[in-house]
């Protein structure tokens, strides 16, 4: 048994990759031909791979952003397919949280399920964050889930999150698998009480 990870997420600190533009869909994040792959392992290589090929100075490849823990995006990020490859690729690339104007529903649900907080900022503030990360890539940002702010160099901007999801991150209960696993002894009791599990022998 692996240790039941009850990962409390209060803050995400680090550099940020700025990714300006609205309606960045899941096909741009991970092109459709990767959807049929049988594993998520290595999917980070697919992250924006088509546009990176045509754009040598893509923010994801910029060495100044290497090791970033945050990604700043625009409006309706992650629209399109319901497959989990897009948030998986972002997380496996090393990003732990996203801040943007808004996120597509299914993308947001999938991100929650894998423990990657998404925070919404006003269009002006999202633009400021993007500009800051572009001009000063070494800036250390802090997304604080308790205070609902993104702060950097003495400044602090408000963000919003879905309250249920924020609470789950703070309580460390976002990880459904860990929740389910914690009750395994009780699962075995319920199973033992079901006549078909014992082959109707008792």
């Amino acid at each position: 048994m692996g240790e039941a990870k009850r990962a409390v997420i209060r803050q995400v600190k680090g550099k940020a990759i700025p990714l300006p533009g609205d309606d960045i869909d899941t096909d741009r994040i991970t092109p459709a031909r990767f959807l049929k792959a049988v594993t998520f392992a290595g999917i980070e290589a697919a992250l924006f791979c088509d546009e990176r090929e045509n754009m040598p100075d893509h923010p994801v490849d910029n060495p100044a952003h290497k090791g970033a823990k945050l990604m700043f995006v625009g409006k309706n990020f992650g629209s399109g397919s319901s497959r989990e490859s897009a948030p998986q690729a972002i997380q496996r690339f090393g990003i732990q949280a996203l801040v943007g104007v808004s996120f597509a529903d299914i993308f947001a649900g999938n991100s929650f399920a894998i423990g990657m907080p998404l925070a919404a900022a006003s269009p002006e503030n999202a633009a400021r964050l993007i500009a800051r990360a572009q001009r000063h890539p070494q800036t250390q940002f802090v997304l604080d889930l308790e205070k609902l702010t993104v702060s950097f160099g003495g400044e602090s901007l408000p963000v919003e999150m879905l309250e249920d999801r924020r609470k789950s991150f703070l309580a460390g209960t976002w990880d459904m698998l860990a929740n389910l696993e914690a009750n395994l002894p009780r699962v075995r009791e319920v199973a033992a009480g079901l006549p078909y599990v014992s082959g109707f022998s008792s």
Partner: peptide, 18 residues
């Protein structure tokens, strides 16, 4: 009811799958 294991923090039921 016979397959419910527990109430989860999300308010959902944890249900055994036969």
């Amino acid at each position: 009811d016979s397959h419910t294991v527990a109430k989860l923090p999300t308010g959902q039921d944890q249900v055994f799958i036969g």
